[in-house]
């Protein structure tokens, strides 16, 4: 195991984050605050509580998931796309670094960044609504798992994309709709029956549901199922990344 390489990649990526600290932390905090003002205060006051939780508090886990997903995907995809684009990837390809070590460095850094962000948003949320976290360990577990899984997904995106448009189109056309339709702002059982069935094909539903359960003990789907689906997605993404590095698809001529 080339731990020096993992550390080098991780440190390099974190340094990149630090250089862009303002835009990477401030903008999500501002936009989340806006969500609270609009949904929590303005609209939320007219919505009755969901499952015994005030609407403002109800949307907190969903909002955190929303930033967690978008940030994980964009951080990780950019982190590996840029070296491909600029050509500096030659060094990684020629180095004695395995696919797994590469993933640990890049995905680890992307996940770290979005977890920190998630925690900042959580802290911001406490300024607006009273929060309770029934299962803190599970909350952290879901946070970790989600950040890792979607950073890994973003990593694949960054390996696949052949241009900046492709890099942006997937988060815009896939991740954002899935998150909005994934129950960030409502409970699945508020949907009409047919839509409820359809929603179960959306992986984000499982994440948001499991995450919200760790806060309020109320879930749309069983927690075990949430966990299982997330781990499955993680494993699948990992297999794809290893395959890409083994074959050199999109990496080597």
């Amino acid at each position: 195991m080339n731990l020096h390489a993992v550390r080098a990649i991780y440190a390099f990526e974190m340094a990149r984050t630090r250089r862009t600290l303002m835009q990477s932390v401030v903008s999500p905090v501002v936009s989340t605050s806006l969500y609270f003002v609009v949904f929590g205060a303005a609209i939320g006051s007219r919505i009755q509580s969901v499952g015994g939780v005030s609407y403002g508090a109800f949307i907190v886990p969903g909002l955190i998931m929303l930033s967690l997903l978008t940030q994980s995907v964009s951080n990780a995809s950019f982190g590996i796309y840029f070296p491909r684009f600029s050509g500096t990837i030659y060094e990684l390809l020629s180095a004695p670094v395995s696919p797994l070590e590469t993933v640990l460095g890049y995905v680890g850094a992307a996940a770290t960044k979005s977890i920190v962000l998630g925690l900042i948003i959580l802290a911001t949320a406490t300024l607006f609504v009273p929060l309770q976290i029934l299962h803190p360990v599970w909350m952290v577990l879901f946070l970790l798992l989600t950040a890792t899984t979607f950073s890994l997904f973003g990593f694949i995106l960054g390996l696949w994309a052949n241009g900046f448009e492709q890099l942006q189109v997937v988060p815009l056309l896939v991740i954002t709709p899935l998150t909005f339709l994934g129950g960030s702002f409502y409970s699945i059982d508020m949907l009409p029956a047919g839509w409820q069935q359809l929603a179960l094909f959306n992986p984000v539903v499982y994440l948001v549901s499991g995450f919200r359960w760790s806060f309020y003990g109320h879930a749309d789907v069983a927690v075990g199922v949430s966990l299982g689906v997330t781990v499955l997605f993680l494993a699948l993404s990992l297999v794809i990344v290893v395959w890409i590095f083994r074959t050199g698809w999109r990496l080597k001529a």
Binding site: N2, H4, A5, A8, A11, S86, T88, A95
Partner: peptide, 20 residues
């Protein structure tokens, strides 16, 4: 092909780490 915003020392230190 080089990074842009990294420092010289940072880039060289990174390479050494990458090669284990």
């Amino acid at each position: 092909t080089t990074d842009a915003f990294e420092t010289v020392l940072g880039a060289v230190t990174f390479s050494r780490g990458l090669f284990g």
